[in-house]
Design a binder for these strands. Structure first.
Lengths: 256, 256
DNA sequence: AGCAACCACTGGTCAGACCACCAGTATACA
DNA sequence: TGTATACTGGTGGTCTGACCAGTGGTTGCT
């Protein structure tokens, strides 16, 4: 006689926690920015140990659903949605994603996003974009600042597209590219030309010229890719001496 | 006299684990499918407690980089790449992603993917696609089986595109849609028409007709969306009585 | 040879203690 | 009075060591 498989209701404690929090989110009890009860207390109310609760919270935090702040508390994420932000780099290293593939993915998504933004963008988006373009022109001599406004501009375009899912996907890819970009931007030149292009994109979107917006964004990204490739080339030559832990493996995108 | 901020090398133990494993992956010491040392042993070698090690492993597992099997061991993921697969549903619930947005995202990505597949697809992909199309025709009377081959077909198109990143993105979205689809497919009709469309897409890709591949894929997805919408309508009417835990909240995509 | 019981090994959970961090408050000093 | 400092309570982070719970190979009986 076979022992009946124990119910295990919800197996793994981890999933019990995840599902519980999930239901709290779905029925609106938990809103973005809200704070979870203290771990000790919450664990007791769920009838599980604090360790198990922490496993579940860790799971949610890893996916970007929760933000944990040491000494403060655990909160529901409230920023722009991210999809496994941190994971792309790792998975990229694991599966050998190539740099050109990331650029291609970004090109496809973002040019389409620009078209949608031209179609659906609201006045508030136009204003925010204009603001960032202005900031870009103002910080042409400060690459690091420039980069910030560059990123902000693209993020606004994402929002203007009216599709948060596509925005989240772009965000995932962009954040993976960002780390590299930050290292090379110091060497970049022609930031003025870049700013000009952003301005043109902005104008096309505001004019609701979808085809033009798509075309310009595509052109802009191609040029950016080319420029970054060149900057990286310089970077490699400059940093050549320091050859730590098999630099060839760095060909893939997964570098820190 | 300000106390110097402690080095904290790599702060959080969690990240120490993650970075360590990351470097093992990047330099090839750890390959997909490989197994990690037992927790007790690994923890000791990293000079941290088993609990902290488990936190780090949990983080990686949540992102799909590692697979943990109770009583067996911890392994590096070896399947097709996934980006925060589980997260989309949660994040969707959190940010109120709408069904049409998921379809739109899928439409954009997958039609572009079809074009790339037409451009770059190799003979092996063509063969695999033909195989799945045949299976679809063979299982027209068995919706559940049909759905499997449907999914496989699209997955092959993804692979044929030659861009694993885009493939991973599509996979993320599709898997979120899949759960719904499985519930409604039972009621679907006109599977023959669907199979015909897949066949046409296959022919366009094999003929390297990028524009046609894109157009057909787009058309196919629009029809699929329409059909599924109708099936869901039937579903809702049929299942109306069972109204568990605020069904209105289910409008968003985040349903289990 | 076949099968059942067993056992060593692996991850999963628990409990309780202590550490590290942060924010607000009370206190000391100018 | 105003400002800097120290304190304190509460929160997450880590550690220890024990025990629970699946897995899969080994052993030993029939």
């Amino acid at each position: 006689m076979r022992r009946v498989k124990k119910d295990n209701s919800e197996t793994h404690r981890t999933m019990r926690v995840v599902n519980h929090i999930r239901s709290l989110i779905e029925d609106g009890t938990l809103q973005p920015g809200d704070r979870l009860p203290p771990e000790r207390e919450f664990a007791q109310s769920l009838k599980i140990s604090r360790a198990s609760l922490r496993t579940g919270i860790g799971y949610l935090a890893a996916m970007g659903v929760m933000k944990v702040r040491h000494g403060v508390g655990t909160f529901v994420a409230d920023g722009p949605p991210e999809l496994g932000k941190a994971s792309l780099g790792l998975i990229g290293a694991l599966h050998g994603f190539q740099s050109w593939q990331m650029f291609e993915a970004r090109l496809i998504l973002e040019s389409q996003l620009a078209a949608l933004a031209a179609e659906r963008g609201k006045q508030e988006h136009h204003a925010a974009m204009a603001e960032e373009v202005a900031e870009m022109f103002a910080s042409i001599e400060m690459p690091t600042d420039y980069l910030i406004h560059d990123i902000l501009f693209h993020r606004i375009v994402s929002q203007a597209s009216g599709n948060p899912i596509l925005a989240a996907l772009i965000e995932t890819i962009t954040s993976a590219l960002y780390d590299d970009r930050r290292k090379t931007v110091e060497r970049s030149t022609d930031l003025r030309e870049s700013a000009e292009m952003h301005r043109e994109i902005y104008r096309a979107i505001r004019a609701r010229n979808t085809a033009e917006a798509r075309r310009l964004m595509e052109q802009h990204l191609r040029m950016a890719q080319e420029a970054q490739g060149m900057e990286q080339h310089l970077e490699r030559k400059a940093v050549l001496p320091r050859a730590k832990t098999k630099p060839e493996a760095r060909t893939a995108v997964g570098l820190s």
